[in-house]
Structure formats: structure tokens, C-alpha cells
Amino acid sequence: KNAAKIVNEALNQGITLFVSDNKLKYKTNRDSIPSELLEEWKQHKQELIDFLTQLES
């Protein structure tokens, strides 16, 4: 999976991924984040940080 797909899947579940101080963060109104999503974010962390940083610049 690529970073764009992961970010879109998160958005579809009401979760916004973003970068703050070079760290991957998220915002959501959900009570909890599915563990498989958290695991996927960890596996692709640097790719996600790079992707989101490019989007914001």
C-alpha cells in the first residue's frame, strides 16, 4: 500500500493524519483506532511523514 491510499482509508474512517514536529499524528472523533490501522501506520511511518509533509508544503 502506498501513503496516499493509507491516508485516504484513514479519512474514510473519520481519521485525519498529519505531521507535527516531524512526528505522525492523528485527529479523530472516534473512541478508538483499530489496531490494524495503527500497525499499518507504524509500518509505513516514514513514507506517511514524507507524503504528508510534501502535501503541506
Rank of each mutant, 00 (worst) to 15 (best):
K1V: 13
K1L: 12
K1I: 09
K1M: 10
A3F: 04
A4K: 09
K5C: 12
K5V: 13
K5H: 13
K5R: 15
I6A: 02
V7F: 13
V7Q: 02
V7A: 04
V7P: 00
V7C: 05
E9A: 07
E9C: 06
A10Q: 01
A10M: 03
A10N: 02
L11N: 06
L11T: 07
L11K: 10
N12T: 12
N12Q: 15
N12P: 01
Q13P: 00
Q13R: 09
Q13T: 04
Q13N: 10
Q13L: 15
G14P: 00
G14N: 05
G14L: 03
G14Y: 04
I15N: 01
I15S: 01
I15H: 03
T16Q: 10
T16K: 08
T16P: 01
T16R: 09
T16L: 14
L17Q: 00
L17I: 05
L17V: 02
L17A: 00
L17T: 00
F18Y: 15
V19L: 07
V19C: 05
V19E: 02
S20I: 14
S20P: 01
D21L: 05
D21P: 01
D21Y: 06
N22Q: 08
N22A: 07
K23T: 14
K23P: 00
K23A: 10
K23W: 05
K23S: 10
L24I: 07
K25L: 15
K25S: 09
K25C: 15
K25R: 13
Y26H: 03
Y26Q: 02
Y26T: 03
Y26G: 02
K27C: 15
T28W: 04
N29Q: 11
N29P: 06
N29C: 14
R30E: 04
R30G: 08
R30M: 10
R30H: 07
D31F: 07
S32M: 09
S32T: 13
I33H: 02
I33C: 03
I33S: 02
I33W: 03
P34A: 05
S35N: 13
S35T: 11
S35F: 13
L37E: 02
L37N: 03
L38T: 05
E39R: 10
E39Q: 11
E39A: 11
E39S: 08
E40H: 07
E40W: 05
E40V: 15
W41T: 02
K42L: 14
K42T: 11
Q43P: 02
Q43D: 07
Q43K: 13
Q46S: 08
Q46N: 08
Q46D: 12
L48P: 00
L48G: 00
L48E: 00
L48T: 01
I49Y: 05
I49T: 04
D50V: 11
D50E: 14
D50H: 10
D50L: 13
L52C: 02
T53L: 13
Q54T: 10
Q54S: 14
Q54V: 08
L55C: 09
L55M: 12
L55I: 10
E56W: 08
E56F: 08
E56I: 12
E56A: 14
S57K: 12
